[in-house]
């Protein structure tokens, strides 16, 4: 029961990441792609959490923490670059 529900949620999150990937490829301007990248990484944090539950390894959550940190820094740095303030 619980595992089925979690599996369905993982598939829904995967579909969401695919939708954001569409915006990532199409997005008319560079900031559009950056927004898509931001949403994509934050969604994959949830997916990494679910994968950690499926394989019951807490070490994957460390991966999620570092991934979130890198994505946040990446978005900030690219935004500063757009503003010519880097």
């Amino acid at each position: 029961m619980v595992n089925t529900l979690l599996f369905i949620s993982a598939i829904i999150i995967l579909l969401a990441i695919l939708l954001t990937f569409y915006r990532f490829i199409k997005g008319p301007t560079a900031p559009d792609r950056l927004v898509a990248f931001d949403v994509m990484t934050v969604s994959s944090l949830a997916l990494i959490g679910l994968i950690a539950k499926f394989s019951s390894r807490i070490i994957y959550l460390d991966v999620a923490i570092v991934y979130g940190l890198l994505s946040f820094l990446g978005v900030i740095i690219v935004s500063r670059y757009f503003e010519r303030g880097l």
């Binding site: 829904i12 999150i13 579909l15 969401a16 990441i17 939708l19 954001t20 569409y22 915006r23 927004v35 898509a36 949403v39 969604s43 949830a46």
Partner: peptide, 9 residues
């Protein structure tokens, strides 16, 4: 998350 992605599109 899915609704957010839909909004993004």
């Amino acid at each position: 998350l899915f609704l957010g992605a839909l909004g993004l599109v």
